[in-house]
């Protein structure tokens, strides 16, 4: 009897949790308060401090030389990423190979180009002519097809592309290797068991699954190389940073010109991040969508 009456009671009872409000969270209120104060301070700082010279920022934002510099920066980043991916893919394959000498070469490659600071590598490639005054193409110890003067071949552009690509290839090789290793070995077994030849096993079955693991760090790496292109300003390559430096060396408006550069770096990085998210979604097909974690 008592049990029954309890059941009836809860149906209309004020204890029904469906009408309950969330937990009281004082720290969250405090956090919001602090955030609002800090934001207000930031706005006052940005608007009230006329040394930012926002009018100068606006004036040079779409300046021709700045646009050209931005173009060079993007071009360098894309070239380094494409060439770095190709070389990185080969190096990763060598690292995963069952053939000892291939593994050793790959390990050495990664150790070398990941181990030396990119700035040092750039200056080194730019000065290659000191070591090798003449560059020749031909069969080793055999006939030579052509010879060029290293000083004409190694321009700031080629030095920058070579240097950045090599650094990229080392990092990407590690990312690719980790991605391929992350795929369940049963997947390779199944592909082979179904008669897929080696190339299709890799391209159709293993790589699409590895991409889920590869894309987030590869996207970060692309962002890194984009920012890394700022290093080439030291070898007089007219990238985005170099373009604004040329202007502020003349006008002494250092802070506003750096803001111009920051603006464009952030624009490109934001676009890249959006692209990376899209790719991630594409390759997560078949892996149940994980809803964003949210506590109430």
């Amino acid at each position: 009897m008592t049990a029954m009456s309890t059941v009836e009671e809860t149906a209309t009872s004020p204890d029904d949790v469906a009408s309950a409000r969330g937990r009281f969270r004082p720290l969250r209120w405090l956090f919001v308060l602090v955030l609002v104060v800090l934001l207000a301070q930031l706005v006052v700082f940005l608007v009230g401090n006329d040394r930012f010279q926002w009018d100068v920022v606006a004036k040079y934002l779409f300046e021709k030389s700045v646009m050209a510099g931005l173009g060079t920066t993007v071009l360098l980043a894309v070239a380094a990423m494409v060439l770095g991916s190709l070389a990185g893919g080969v190096v990763a394959a060598m690292q995963l190979s069952g053939f000892g000498p291939a593994r050793w070469v790959a390990t050495l490659w990664v150790g070398l180009f990941r181990g030396i600071p990119p700035l040092v590598q750039l200056i080194f490639w730019f000065n290659l002519a000191y070591l090798l005054p003449k560059l020749s193409l031909g069969i080793p110890f055999g006939p030579v097809f052509g010879t060029w003067d290293a000083n004409t071949v190694i321009t700031p552009l080629t030095a920058a592309v070579i240097g950045l690509s090599l650094v990229e290839s080392a990092y990407l090789a590690e990312i690719f290797r980790a991605g391929v290793s992350s795929v369940d070995p049963g997947q390779r077994d199944a592909a082979r068991a179904m008669g897929y030849p080696p190339g299709q096993t890799l391209l159709r079955i293993v790589l699409p699954q590895a991409m889920r693991v590869i894309i987030p760090p590869a996207g970060s790496q692309f962002i890194n190389v984009l920012k890394g292109t700022a290093l080439v300003s030291v070898i007089a390559m007219s990238d985005l940073l170099h373009a604004v430096q040329v202007i502020y060396n003349r006008t002494y408006e250092i802070v506003p010109m750096l803001l111009v550069a920051c603006f464009w770096y952030l624009v490109v990085v934001t676009l890249l991040t959006a692209g990376q998210r899209r790719l991630e979604r594409r390759f997560s097909r078949g892996h149940l969508p994980v809803a964003p974690r949210r506590n109430r």
């Binding site: 369940d184 049963g186 997947q187 077994d189 199944a190 592909a191 082979r192 068991a193 179904m194 008669g195 897929y196 030849p197 080696p198 079955i205 699409p208 699954q209 390759f283 097909r285 078949g286 892996h287």
Partner: peptide, 24 residues
Amino acid sequence: ERRIAAQRRRMSMVFQQFNLFPQF
């Protein structure tokens, strides 16, 4: 490996862990 793949095509196998391709 290509020739071996051609021989495997005349047999097939079912695994303990299924090993279906998750992206398909």
